[in-house]
Design a binder for these strands. Structure first.
Lengths: 246, 246
DNA sequence: TAGATTGTTAATCGATTAACAATC
DNA sequence: TAGATTGTTAATCGATTAACAATC
């Protein structure tokens, strides 16, 4: 086993980094141990992280699932399972160490090493992401932006230069940038995705409301504000209506 | 039954608007018929909508679930169930009418009447949302912005004025604005939410990574870009690792 | 008509929740 | 120690998928 990292006296192995808890592993077709991390867990981990950061700043050193549950409106057993994915172990009757939780989540989500990305499409949404400072905390950095509009090429936003989209593929390859962000309109999205794939990119964060066709080894994460908005407005409607009809 | 709207010869009643399909209804405690729309369905409806819009622009008039499934990578029975929630009915062997689909989704999600909102917190993310033109299509409109920073108050972005947060509650009440957007930092988020609730707002679109405490009749929709990012980066890691370890 | 597609029920799958022994 | 909390298995719940009769 490979020594991957150390926290105090605990040795975290590569397996351990994936997970210390045997019940998460499943045998795949080849009889090999594999692990699949449920997406809901990955989505909740950042929420825990933010809470722990705030707790840590307020001087908290230990925290139990009961308390976390009160704060985030989650059931304690679910929290235990979620946190277990990071490989952390708590102490019965005591709980978890806040600093350790923070470290384990950072490690687990890869927030300990810089992740560089290209962004394609410097419209409103694109510019917003370029100007957004919040990504620093997660070692996520947009290093170049791309567009086709001559009026935008040559400009820069938040000191990130806008280049012509034709240069994306070659630059990605040369700089080894593996993550692409798509903020172009829906008609151009597939074309841009193709350029990214051709440039050897392995992950696409897609803000266009289209289902991108990509090879199996390219991960696509779709983001769509309108989905969230429609959940909100529909729930408000239904809330209202029950009041009206009764 | 109340006549709510008409599409051609079909009369859509209030019940029909909720749903035409009896198997979606469940008897609640009082023996009354109620319906709960699963959140995944609400999140997918906008994706269908965008596809239908594009199809309609390309001249398509009819579409089957088989085709929709190919385009969006979804299983046909799931698509049928999802669309059924809007109350639309298809024709066996033929499929659905694209224009009708568009109308039913707009109607179902309430995109046919203007929904006004206030935004609190004109930092990077807030400004991005103010400048974002995409909401027009869904009849969603930010009509005023709020902050505490004297340097920002009095300014305007995309011709939306920034006012002092103290005015939020009273204005919300006077203008009857029921939807609030929170783009302040995590420490101020709960305070702002309290102001919104006090102003009679019934829906909060929350971009701060905090679990807001609100009364039961206030809907909170949490939005967190970092959740999406962590799903993407973790999946990329795991993809990579299987390649490495083999 | 024959074949494709819908509407709807039943079966499956996966995530959440409940239960409880182990532990500090 | 006693009681609270963890780690882990089992039960439940809800969403997705499969199956198939009805239909144009």
């Amino acid at each position: 086993m490979i020594n991957f990292s150390q926290f105090g006296q605990r040795v975290v192995t590569l397996d351990g980094l994936l997970n210390n808890h045997n019940y998460f592993f499943r045998k795949d077709v080849m009889g090999k141990k594999t692990i699949v991390i449920p997406e809901p867990v990955l989505r909740r981990l950042p929420l825990y992280y933010h809470l722990f950061k705030r707790l840590s700043e307020s001087g908290y050193e230990k925290i139990s699932c009961t308390l976390i549950g009160k704060e985030l409106d989650l059931a304690p057993p679910q929290i235990r399972k979620d946190l277990a994915y990071t490989g952390i172990r708590g102490v019965p009757k005591v709980g978890y160490e806040v600093l350790e939780l923070i470290e384990f989540i950072e490690q687990f989500l890869g927030w300990n090493k810089l992740d560089e990305a290209f962004l394609a499409g410097t419209g409103n949404l694109g510019k917003a992401l370029l100007n957004y400072k919040g990504f620093d905390k997660y070692k996520f950095k947009i290093v170049a932006a791309f567009d086709v509009d001559p009026a935008l090429i040559g400009k820069s936003f938040a000191s990130i230069d806008v280049l012509h989209i034709d240069k994306l593929g070659e630059l990605a390859q040369r700089m080894g940038v593996k993550t692409g962000i798509i903020t172009v309109n829906q008609n151009a999205a597939q074309m841009v995705a193709d350029l990214m794939v051709a440039g050897g990119m392995k992950g696409i964060w897609n803000f266009a409301p289209v289902n991108l066709k990509t090879p199996d080894d390219v991960i696509v994460q779709n983001e769509n504000l309108v989905s969230g908005l429609s959940v909100l407005t529909k729930k408000m409607q239904l809330n209202n209506r029950t009041g009206e009809i009764k």
